[in-house]
Design a protein around this nucleic acid. Structure first.
Lengths: 139, 139
DNA sequence: ATTAGTTGTAATGTCAATACTTACAACAAA
DNA sequence: TTTGTTGTAAGTATTGACATTACAACTAAT
């Protein structure tokens, strides 16, 4: 099991905007050409990024732009924009409350697994769009 | 998106074996009664735990037992037994190789996301079955 | 105003994974 | 030989990801 490709697609989208904003008009078709997916997928992701105030999209004539400097956009911002916030692991929903293990499992295992999620979020927060831009070759 | 309930179910299963091994014969029906799922689900999970050498299951007459002391079984062992090993995030598969961003995205983002996975695995490794047993009430 | 190009969104289809259930052959011990 | 259990296969339902088609709403330029 793994996360959908929406985070990678969203990051790719933001990078394209940051890199090419002065050379081209950044339409969903333009982005889709770099990402390699259907333009509708890009428009949906752009809509999520827009709801999270990460980008501005101009309806009609078209064109997307970042809403903040790349140094102030973290992967956690992007992650939260495109993925629903839920527990990392799905728990079985009917453990037996009359059993010592059944009545405790959610409590004792859930807290440990929550810690793992929190650590992952901190790591996502430490990665900025700017740091990814800096990693691009000859840029 | 989240992981399936197989890890929680597997941990629950191992805890039931550890706690009740001296009082009851641990059949898939017995475990299923505590976990609250169909016995076939338990048998499938037990089969995966058996393949990973974490438990012994006696066919025919029935009964499951741990193959090592609870202090020597980590959640990473269990995780690897029940989940396939793959990247945390699914990557879009056709980025444009003629685009600066498209040709680099997998490299620069993939390594960062791999680090997150590795950290999560280290955390899973630090949690033993024994530590969960110690967290159970009045045990 | 009209046109051209784009966005926003709905509807639909395909595919894969999860989870549940029924069914039954293989098995081990009494 | 009987009894209870395991190991698996098969079938169904549900969900989510992703792709695609279609089109109304919108904006700027002509």
């Amino acid at each position: 099991m793994q996360f959908s490709s929406r985070l990678p697609i969203a990051v790719h989208t933001l990078l394209v905007i940051a890199v090419f904003k002065d050379q081209y008009k950044i339409t969903s078709d333009f982005i889709a050409g770099s990402v390699g997916v259907n333009p509708v997928i890009v428009r949906n992701v752009l809509g999520q990024l827009k709801s999270a105030n990460l980008v501005e999209v101009t309806a009609g004539i078209g064109g997307a732009a970042l809403n903040r400097p790349p140094a102030e956009i973290t992967l956690l911002d992007v992650f939260r924009a495109v993925e629903v916030d839920e527990d990392l692991f799905h728990f079985h929903e009917h453990p037996n409350p009359d059993c010592l293990v059944g009545k405790s499992i959610h409590n004792i295992l859930g807290t440990k697994l929550d810690d793992i999620k929190k650590t992952a979020e901190l790591q996502l927060k430490s990665i900025t769009l700017q740091s990814l831009l800096d990693s691009l070759p000859n840029k």
